[in-house]
Design a protein around this nucleic acid. Structure first.
Length: 261
DNA sequence: TGTGATGTTGAATG
DNA sequence: GCATTCAACATCAC
């Protein structure tokens, strides 16, 4: 379930399993998951190298190869890593795996195939051309607020726009709006500076808490919204409504979350 | 059987 | 340039 906290957990997993081991082969069962070069070229670029580090920006995770090049792992809706040795542990929807010298395999599981893997020569150039915004946990409050200037989009649309702010997805956007008692369709230009600061603080606290719990939803605080966010009904704060906002299914609590329109 | 799902992109529209 | 909506991507679960 890859939003920023999930991807952060994948990154930790990657670092705990796949660094500093020579890549002896890459086995690709679905060519289309490698987006920017051919599958064969991808194999050639990785074989013989090893990963020395990794980094993350929003939902984009980068494996750093020891020759100064990079591999992008974008998990789409259903991507996941699984490191394994035995054939019986291969994930069900594995699209490719990287075989290391010691016999370990880093499998990439992805039922819905929305994931994107790329080989990258220059990371800075790549991020710049992509127009990827600053990471939601790194951006400063002042920049966060400044980016809202002159915009009329909904707060949800703002939080989801990866070119402005990288990392927040549909679930966490709803959580942020719930905790700050803002209707997700509220217009950013109608929010007070004070409210914007509140939203910024909630965003960081929610993402950090989620990371602390390794993106394991069941461990999230009891007063979070996510567990109500499955169907229309009534939460302790009021009636839950569902609307399409910024093109995404959005849950919120009527009355609890104020409209700034 | 039809519908929608945690993400992103590109096209079309205003 | 900005905002919105829609379709597409591919598969699975309800």
């Amino acid at each position: 379930m890859p939003e920023l906290p999930e991807v952060n957990t994948f990154k930790k997993y990657f670092e705990g399993t796949s660094l500093r081991q020579k890549i002896v082969d890459v086995s690709i069962s679905d060519d289309k998951i490698i987006r920017n070069i051919s599958a064969q070229e991808f194999v050639n670029r990785l074989t013989g190298k090893s990963f020395s580090a990794s980094s993350r920006r929003g939902k984009y995770m980068f494996g750093h190869l020891d020759n100064g090049t990079f591999v992008l792992f974008h998990f789409g809706m259903t991507g996941d890593f699984k490191y394994y040795f035995e054939e019986e542990d291969r994930p069900k929807h594995e699209r490719f795996h990287i075989l290391f010298e010691g016999g370990g395999k880093l499998g990439f599981d992805c039922p819905r195939k929305f994931a994107r893997i790329e080989f990258i020569e220059n990371l800075k150039t790549y991020i710049k051309e992509l127009g990827l915004g600053e990471d939601a946990l790194i951006i400063q409050e002042g920049d966060f607020i400044e980016m809202m200037n002159g915009r009329t989009t909904s707060i949800k649309g703002f939080l989801l726009n990866q070119k402005l702010l990288a990392g927040v997805g549909n679930l966490y956007a709803d959580e942020i709006c719930y905790q700050t008692r803002v209707y997700p369709g509220s217009r950013v230009n109608k929010l007070s500076v004070r409210k914007k600061k509140e939203i910024f603080a909630a965003m960081q606290s929610i993402l950090n808490t989620a990371i602390d719990r390794t993106a394991h939803y069941k461990d999230y605080p009891d007063d979070w919204f996510w567990k109500w966010r499955t169907k229309e009904g009534t939460s302790e704060k009021g009636k839950i409504l569902v609307e399409k906002i910024a093109g995404r299914t959005t849950y919120f609590v009527k009355g609890w979350q104020r409209k700034y329109m």
